[in-house]
Write a protein that binds this DNA or RNA. Structure first.
Lengths: 233, 233, 233, 233
DNA sequence: GATGAATGAGTGTTCATTCAT
DNA sequence: GATGAATGAACACTCATTCAT
């Protein structure tokens, strides 16, 4: 690499590792994710992102074309991240009830742990989903989440544990709603009702409630008693 | 007064209701609500608001000081609206189970009917709740929502219908989460999973699910059968 | 005065004295003088003046036409004021040296006591004197100041005390320069050299210096000794 | 580099000295100095400055942040300029009397030659000195002016020529007052008393008067005769 | 690939002033 | 005479983006 030689010859010592394009891209995306998550698309200044990274503003345009291009990449990468975390779940060996509770409470925790992701989704919804990644890329990843639920739900139905007539998508919607709202609306909810629910103890209760809620939602009524004990505080 | 007659007679369009500050304020807020709801605080251009109203841009500054002042008023007024709708509910005569289902499904419908409000809350949460109305004004209105749930819940407990150990605030959180998510995340959810749930049929199912979910969440397990029939499609 | 009767009949208790146009004008001018003196012509907001007075903004336009008209009146009135103070001087009975010193030190003190006037003159000079009162009105008042100096100076020359070849206008220029600068440049001078000269002790020294300076400037050299003692601290 | 040749060759007028930040800054400051000196801080329109320079309005914000930042720089640079002119004075070889007269008359002329500077100081005093440069930068430059006077004054005292008990700062104040007023108040003074003093002949007289005044102010009385001849017209 | 300089098209905001009552 | 409402023209300032080196 003649370039590297040239650089050494002319010092510029702090540039050495920046020549790695992937690393530059990754740094930009990282900084941009934080910025967009905090202030939204129009609320974020390109200059602000540039100021927080070690390369220059020009690189943003070099790699991502424009602000919107950068935002799209940030959003796509955020979806990839969260799905990657979900893939780590291993529920095959659990009975349907436990698996369903597990998936619900895991989602609750995963969302709570990735607040930047939730904020990006909030922002993207404000923009009516105009910058969502390609359907192909998305559905590939997300269908697996549904398939997992489908598997659990049908196992539960076959075992006579779950009431029939529901869809895995509806269960996903249910779990997502509770887990998402827990992060998305902290600010306004706290301002109105106080922040107790979002402190450690409150979160533990809510997580269990989310598990309870989904399980109770699908269980046949004559099967309910067996888990009722869990939901007491 | 001949003038009034003339005005009714149609012309003098620019003067007809000038010098009526309440009306001017109301028009500005109405236009601004739509604009802010669509594009957020920083995404909305003051000129765009001005273009859609019959008064000039200058009046926004006359009445609201600046863009943020206008946004604050829009948000406060949106909260007032939604609470006003909630006050119309009359649940005193219903048994606890029916009342709870009623309050849940009503919230679901009320949120679905006031999408601008939901979008404003989304936006405000992106801004970390920095522009929320005075706690005094808010809590006065919102505590009543909680008190209603408290009343229903304690009636249900006393009747031996509901399991104990929950709080009205948690029930409110539960109902809000499902009803809110149904509006807030339509865009991204549809892009990933298709829009079926948000069409008329899907919404009807979801509405019932929300009722089921909350009722099943609180009912003692030996009381469940009696409403199980309702939740089938 | 039918008006007064009407007003009593319809209460409006706090307006009673505002109906006196002179008083309204005087109040406006007083408030405006302070405002213009502090912030200049373009730096002063009409609204700010209005806020500090008991009548409405509309009255400014009613009485003075526009902002510039008000400023002109304020300036003219300020000149009238300062001349009025000067007229109180009675120097006829003093010998020329004492009278000259008296006029110099009085001017120094008078300027120091009317800082708003000095600031208005500063501002007017920034505007190249574009709003100065009619020459007729001005010269009538100011020529008297010159005539006073002329009288003292010619008495001094006739008595063989003063050197000849100077003009009363030059003496006036001399006295004015020192007295004016003492007020006009306090801010910048203090920032550079500290504020000592503008505290009580420093001002007393400067006042005497101004007297010394003018007297020494005109005295024939063989007449100097007799006043030299005064100028020691 | 052929490019450099081409540029010298005259054309490419818009590009010729672009990308030369010092030059751009200098041009902006030059234009802004004239504008602020003429109309003050609030009276000057940024667009007016922009219209008179070869770069765009945007550059003002790029280099100076905002209007006030530009004004500050203009003011600081104006102080630097005037001090630079003063440094050219070489008074070491002159006797104290001649040196004092020299410094006084030079100041008079220097101020008269740099009216923009005086006007900026006027304006800054209207603003109560709120935008004055750092004390460090200022005092470094200005203390030298005082030290020069201190040197002359103490030499004069030691030689038995000057009366004691004065301070160099007071002498500086005296000289500044006369020299400053001569520029600052031309407009109003002329409007009242006519402009004769500010024409060539009048200025020559005033310059000599300023020299006379300061010298007479410090000389012991028995030393006066020797210079008295100079002050006759 | 990398950097500071440069830019056009807006963007929120302010001002003196006038109108309707 | 008096008041709050209304206004148009302009104002300082910002933004994403591109250019020159």
């Amino acid at each position: 690499m003649a370039d590297v030689e040239d650089m050494k010859a002319k010092d510029l010592p702090r540039r050495s590792w920046k020549q790695d394009p992937d690393r530059v891209r990754a740094e930009i995306i990282g900084v941009a994710r934080a910025a967009f998550a905090r202030k939204g698309l129009s609320g974020t200044r390109i200059e602000e992102i540039a100021a927080r990274m070690s390369t220059s503003k020009r690189m943003i345009y070099y790699y991502f074309g424009d602000k919107e291009g950068l935002y799209r990449e940030v959003l796509a990468e955020a979806y990839r991240r969260i799905r990657r975390a979900e893939e780590a779940l291993d529920l095959e060996h659990l009975d349907p009830v436990a698996a369903l509770r597990q998936i619900a409470e895991f989602t609750f925790e995963n969302h709570a742990a990735q607040q930047d992701f939730i904020r990006l989704v909030m922002i993207e919804n404000v923009h009516a989903g105009a910058h969502m990644p390609d359907t192909e890329e998305m559905s590939g990843q997300n269908v697996s989440a549904i398939r997992l639920l489908e598997d659990i739900y049908s196992r539960g139905c076959e075992a006579g544990l779950f009431r029939t007539g529901l869809s895995a998508l509806e269960l996903h919607w249910h779990i997502s709603a509770l887990s998402y709202f827990n992060v998305s609306n902290r600010a306004t909810f706290s301002k109105i009702f106080g922040g107790e629910l979002f402190e450690a103890k409150g979160q533990a209760r809510l997580r269990r409630h989310v598990g309870d809620s989904v399980v109770r939602f699908v269980l046949k009524s004559d099967r309910l008693p067996e888990f009722d004990g869990h939901s007491r505080d």
